[in-house]
């Protein structure tokens, strides 16, 4: 049996809403540790990998590992009809491998709504991605920034053009774009003090200057998810896609991987 319980207002619904910008269905793998979800956008440019640990929920039970294709669009539609404070239960039994049941219960237990959602085939969403610990060393630069700053950057950059250059060296991280109507250049000086301020950008490591050019259209879902968290971690590499991560409690994460248009080592945009 698989069962999780949470109070509406938790991060899950917000995350699912943002995933809808990428896909309508996603594959969910459940284990006793928590559940993971993979989603690949229709253009195959963005890949999302998330892990919600069991600790993120009020209660969580998974007796046996199972994989389920979920119609995220239908699930979100149902969750939208609930009120804040409702208790959400998602349940799958060993007797019925074709459906999951989602129940919404008002805090005073007066009203209950339930839906049986038919499982779908979402195996096309699955990619084989290496463990982050094995991949991390391929990232020449990793830094953290307040997600509000990241979101504001996403907003101001999208005004001008789709192509955005992210450049990083040991001193500065910059986001820039230029188009017919002008240009935007945002730079953040890295905070290197022992006591970083809350609003600062903190460099985890950088091995020389590096710049990535991305089509910012593909960052829409990522910018939406970052709103739900305090911090985002961004990884740049010439061998790997751009990585943007938000941390869910201690062990969980949402990681976006976005294929860049261009990756250059040894130079930064001025």
């Amino acid at each position: 049996m698989f069962e999780l319980k949470m109070v509406k207002g938790s991060t899950l619904q917000g995350v699912l809403e943002a995933i809808l910008d990428l896909v309508n269905v996603a594959n969910v793998d459940c284990s006793s540790e928590g559940f993971s979800l993979q989603a690949l956008d229709t253009e195959h440019v963005v890949f999302l990998s998330l892990f919600f640990p069991s600790e993120a929920f009020q209660s969580y039970r998974c007796d046996e590992d199972r994989s389920m294709g979920i119609a995220i669009a239908d699930m979100v539609d149902f969750l939208r009809s609930s009120n804040d404070g409702d208790i959400i239960t998602i349940k799958a039994t060993d007797q019925n491998l074709e459906d999951i049941t989602i129940t919404l219960e008002s805090p005073d237990k007066i009203k209950t709504m339930a839906i049986d959602l038919r499982l779908v085939d979402a195996t096309s969403q699955c990619l084989k991605i290496p463990d982050w610990n094995d991949m991390e060393s391929d990232y020449q630069a990793i830094f953290c920034m307040p997600s509000e700053e990241f979101r504001l950057n996403c907003k101001s950059l999208s005004v001008i053009d789709d192509d955005v250059v992210i450049s990083v060296n040991e001193e500065v991280i910059s986001f820039s774009t230029k188009g017919e109507s002008g240009c935007v250049n945002i730079s953040h000086v890295m905070n290197k003090t022992d006591k970083p301020e809350k609003a600062s950008v903190i460099l985890t490591h950088a091995r020389g200057p590096l710049s990535l050019t991305l089509n910012w259209r593909y960052m829409k879902s990522c910018a939406k998810v970052s709103k739900l968290f305090d911090q985002v971690k961004i990884g740049l590499s010439t061998k790997r896609p751009l990585m943007v991560e938000c941390q869910i409690v201690e062990k969980g994460y949402i990681r976006y991987f976005v294929a860049p248009l261009k990756a250059e080592e040894g130079k930064t945009e001025t």
């Binding site: 690949l40 253009e43 440019v45 990619l127 084989k128 089509n215 991987f257 294929a259 860049p260 248009l261």
Partner: peptide
Amino acid sequence: GRKQPTITNYFGRA
């Protein structure tokens, strides 16, 4: 025009 690389250039199918 410019070709947008896909994520499958980086990660293979499971």
